[in-house]
Nucleic acid binder design. Structure first.
Lengths: 200, 200
DNA sequence: GCCTTTTGACTAACTGGTTAGTAAGTACTG
DNA sequence: CAGTACTTACTAACCAGTTAGTCAAAAGGC
């Protein structure tokens, strides 16, 4: 399309992945989606494995950009903005197929060191960003300074990943997280003038 | 082995699943693991899909039994016992392969209604048991009666699933959950004589 | 002898990857 | 500018390997 065959193929991979899932993703599917022949895909990327590794790099850039797009006047608002992007946003059925395919890839990580290394970077980026927001909140005296930013960021990361997994496997809407998540932030993270502590 | 070919095949399926993973699980693998021929597997279970559906039923019984094995003198101890079983226990590398295979199955749920229905039962059983424990804790005045048992059980379920996903995909040890999880239970669930509230 | 269980041999479908070859554009050379 | 060499992009045809599922025949128990 845009006179860049390599990029075309990556975009076609994205579409084919959503349409067929990772387990059933064939070079032929990608070829069909890119209006090229199967051999052309091999010509540009060699093996299927090499293509997919390049695709994960391409996804990583999108992922970090999405996370960086979160913003807010205060650390608390920044945090909520990030949660919006990661939890309430991917409810759309269009992105649901993508979430499913990503979970398939995650499940393949233990069988493929290269994939696992790349997924670790995804995970670390999110966790690091969360930690930075929490540290900023503490510094601004908006968050409780007794909170350990690393532990709390790790906890939030686990919750987010759990929501994604349950959404894919049992169709559990991430909206259910809204109340307990807000409560957790309110009670744990915020620098409470010790007035009230409303539980879930 | 035990003069019950059907059961033998299910156990062989378990072993083959751990050894090869779900994506690479073939009837031939199961046959090899059961010391039977491929055709014999088909004779007893028909299609691969039917076999795997029966295998999930078999797993469900094990899963619920494992959850029911949790116990404690008080609801709080009961809850910690259950978390022990679900989080700190599956660290052993033997069970790690199994966790990985299960995540592969979870990722296939959206493509197979039958699998998804079965996985929903797994999820619901855990969430229901957690809810029952929380309700018992409230009734015993050990837990805060302002907590909504359904919401809290759902939150805990999501956290547990998130820990499993991260353990498989990025080798993240569930032990990291210990501190924030204990804090959450302490601060949220427990009926605090409003003395102290130590965050993470 | 009959009914269940088991098996080896086979097939149809599909997959990743290879190869020989085409077409079009670019760079170099005299 | 004409001709040649080289490169990029692409393709149809093909290959080797794998897999779920079938089937007729053999083995085993009662």
């Amino acid at each position: 399309m845009e006179d860049n065959p390599m990029a075309d193929i990556l975009e076609a991979t994205h579409r084919a992945l959503c349409r067929h899932g990772y387990a059933d993703l064939t070079i032929q599917d990608i070829a069909a989606e890119s209006a090229k022949s199967k051999a052309t895909i091999h010509y540009h990327y060699g093996t299927k494995e090499a293509l997919f590794s390049a695709f994960l790099d391409y996804l990583y850039d999108q992922y970090t950009a999405q996370i960086d797009a979160a913003s807010g006047e205060t650390p608390l608002k920044h945090l909520h903005s990030l949660l919006d992007i990661l939890l309430w946003n991917p409810t759309e059925p269009a992105k649901q197929a993508f979430q499913t395919a990503i979970l398939e890839v995650k499940a393949q990580a233990p069988y493929d060191d290269s994939v696992q290394e790349q997924l670790i970077e995804f995970d670390a980026y999110l966790s690091d960003r969360l930690q930075a927001i929490i540290e900023a909140g503490i510094q601004a005296r908006e968050f409780n300074d007794e909170v350990d930013p690393s532990t709390a960021a790790d906890f939030l990361t686990t919750i987010i990943k759990g929501a994604h997994t349950r959404q894919v496997t049992v169709n559990h809407p991430p909206e259910h997280l809204s109340v307990p998540m807000t409560d957790y932030i309110q009670t744990y993270l915020l620098a409470n003038d010790p007035a009230e502590a409303p539980p879930a």
